[in-house]
């Protein structure tokens, strides 16, 4: 177990180093002059040249990389070329918003997708199965921004039930501000007993979270259905049926656990992807997440920010995979750590 753990952590570190080299090369080979961005508008050529030296951009790439990694080892992600502020503090500002959104989205996807997948598999060709398969195809293939607009039109414009965009209402921002503790607005407002803010944050979270949930929902339904159909044909499930165990007990208590590992792997992948891959949803709902921060950084060739995000997401990805492996090992005692 410990051996397995250490091995996986070391492997993760190797992956991260490879990732950092790759990202570094790509961001530095990309066209654009970080020094010009650093000094800002209408700068003189001399100013740009000075910045090139200050930023160490005149040194060979491997040296620049070594310096970057040395800083990284000391927990320093460098300064944003665009804002001159520490990349780490900027990521710390954007990441909780992304996490709050993506975690909610994935939770919604699991809460809806898991039962629907199970119900579909219990009676292939039945009503639930037809509904589940239709929804799964729709939710995976519908463009997310289109879904986002649709939700806005229905729930904001037509029904007036939910807010258009943002994380919390401006009145809350002005009159009942939430003090930042975790950066999760729903959590922070609860911790402070600020109910007005909590309900505002919750209402603002619904539409973007549902939008984010669509894709993983479809994946989960399909994964659960497919793996459950495989499991249901197995002898141990048939035996329980032959001994009179109830269908729902068999499906939800027994077979689902067998069907879970592949689904978990998919969920972990979707999660890491969603953290930066949802910039369209963030745009439509004006959600101050990491996706837009990253898109902006890539476009302006703000390489310390791109590197920083890549490494943070990389770490999250590696940790998440480790957690999934541990959970799968917890589910299936036959999995031995090799």
């Amino acid at each position: 177990m410990l051996h397995f753990f250490v091995r996986r952590v070391l492997l993760g570190v190797l992956v991260l180093i490879g990732l950092s080299v790759l990202t570094f090369i790509i961001t530095r080979v990309a066209p654009g002059d970080p020094a010009a961005l650093w000094v800002g508008p209408r700068a003189s050529v001399a100013q740009i040249e000075r910045a090139t030296v200050t930023l160490g951009l005149n040194r060979p790439l491997p040296v620049q990389y070594a310096i970057y990694m040395d800083d990284l080892a000391h927990g320093n992600l460098g300064l944003s070329i665009e804002t001159h502020r520490p990349v780490s503090s900027e990521i710390a500002s954007y990441l909780p918003a992304s996490l709050e959104l993506v975690v909610s989205g994935i939770v919604i996807a699991i809460l809806l997708g898991l039962p629907l997948g199970v119900l579909a598999a219990m009676r292939p060709g039945g009503v639930f199965d037809a509904v589940a398969r239709l929804l799964a195809v729709l939710s995976v293939s519908v463009p997310t921004f289109w879904l986002a607009f649709l939700l806005q039109i229905v729930f904001f414009k037509d029904l007036g039930l939910l807010p258009l965009a943002g994380r919390v209402s401006n009145l809350v921002i002005a009159l009942d501000p939430i003090t930042r503790i975790t950066g999760f607005m729903t959590v922070d407002s609860l911790l402070q007993g600020n109910w007005v803010a909590f309900f505002s944050a919750l209402r603002h979270l619904v539409l973007p979270a549902v939008t984010i949930a669509a894709y993983p929902f479809g994946l989960i339904v399909r994964m659960v259905r497919a793996s459950l159909l495989d499991v249901i044909a197995l002898d141990h499930v048939r035996l329980l049926r032959a001994l009179g165990q109830k269908r729902y007990t068999i499906a939800f208590r027994y077979a689902l656990k067998n069907a879970l590992p592949p689904t978990l792997t998919v969920i972990a992948l979707t999660f890491a992807y969603s953290l930066t891959g949802t910039f369209l949803v963030e745009s439509v709902f004006n959600w101050p997440g990491l996706g837009n921060y990253t898109a902006q950084a890539v476009i302006t060739n703000n390489y310390p920010a791109v590197m920083g995000v890549t490494i943070v997401i990389g770490v999250i990805y590696v940790v998440l995979n480790l957690v999934v492996d541990l959970v799968i090992a917890g589910i299936d005692p036959r999995v031995r750590y090799v």
Binding site: P163, A165, S169, H204, N286
Partner: peptide, 14 residues
């Protein structure tokens, strides 16, 4: 140019 709608921040009702 990159097909984005814009940057991000916080929004609002009320």
């Amino acid at each position: 140019g990159a097909g984005l709608v814009g940057l991000s921040a916080c929004g609002s009702s009320g």
